[in-house]
Amino acid sequence: MSQIHEKSPKHCAAKQSHFPAHKFNKKLFYSFSTLLLTILALILLVWLTLHPTKPQFSLKQTDIYQLNLSSFPHLLNSSIQVTLFSQNPNRKVGIYYDILEVYASYKGQQISLDTSIPPFYQGHEESNVLSASLLGEGLPVAPSFGYQVGRDKSTSGNLVISVKANGRLRWRVGSWVSGRYRFNVDCIAILPFSGSSLPTGPLTTKQGTQCSTAL
């Protein structure tokens, strides 16, 4: 004798009501995913269309007021003033400089501490003049530091130092602001010698040099 299983009207109603809820959640998920992908595609399209150009830097003036080296244990005291010119070449993209730290080096040796320049915003095709006082007190340098400086004086008559900047920036397109990007700036300053091998008085150059920017 066969058995007939009948489902109660209550059971059937519960099962039927389950499917519309499942379909609604699935449709909501697809709608949200489509909206998110559309927004990301729009941002990517704007980014590729505008294609921001990295900022440009140049070194306008360098003044060395102190560069004193102790004979032992080869510690350096320095005082350097630099003036940088920063330019945003983009016509439709602004730049937020969140972090910008400047320091000086000589033959790969850092001869000043990092100096922070306050954060600032640079509008479309805008330029800014940036000044920084680079100081160092008791910085350890190689034993050959004094010899290298003396050799530069006798061979070329110039002291060549690097002025470097490391930072983080954000691009702004309309109301949209990007994430942070790391950038590095490298400038060369050529200062003619005067007096002793290691300068204790001002050495100055106003010969502007273009800097390289890596982003």
Rank of each mutant, 00 (worst) to 15 (best):
S8N: 05
K54G: 04
E6W: 08
E101Q: 12
C12A: 10
V149Y: 07
Y121A: 15
L28E: 13
A165R: 02
I99M: 07
S71M: 12
P202F: 14
P143W: 00
S105K: 05
L36R: 04
P143V: 00
S196R: 15
P143R: 00
Q56C: 07
C12E: 09
K92N: 14
V82G: 03
V177C: 03
I161A: 02
E101S: 10
H18K: 12
R170Q: 11
S133Q: 06
F183T: 06
H5T: 13
S17M: 10
P9F: 08
S112Q: 05
H124S: 07
L45H: 14
P89Q: 01
H22G: 14
A142I: 12
I99Q: 12
E125G: 11
E125D: 12
K15R: 15
G150L: 09
S116Y: 08
L37R: 01
L42K: 08
S112C: 06
Q87S: 15
S17C: 10
W47Q: 11
F32N: 13
Y97V: 01
Q122V: 03
S2A: 14
Y147S: 14
P20N: 04
T205F: 03
S175D: 09
N88D: 02
G167N: 00
R91W: 07
A21C: 15
Q61D: 14
S79L: 09
S116V: 06
D114W: 15
H74E: 10
L130E: 03
L84S: 01
Q109S: 10
T155Q: 13
Y65S: 10
V163T: 06
P192W: 01
S79P: 03
L36F: 10
N166H: 11
F193E: 06
Q148L: 11
N68K: 15
W47S: 10
G146N: 12
H5L: 10
L50Q: 08
V185N: 02
Y121K: 09
R151Y: 11
D98I: 02
N77Y: 10
S2C: 11
Y65I: 04
A214I: 07
G174A: 00
F19A: 07
L135M: 09
V185Y: 00
L130R: 03
N77T: 03
S197T: 15
D152K: 04
P143S: 01
L75D: 03
L191G: 04
I95W: 02
F120Y: 07
T155F: 07
P119K: 08
F24L: 15
I95N: 02
Q148V: 11
Y103L: 04
A142Q: 13
L35E: 09
L191Y: 01
S86W: 07
K92C: 09
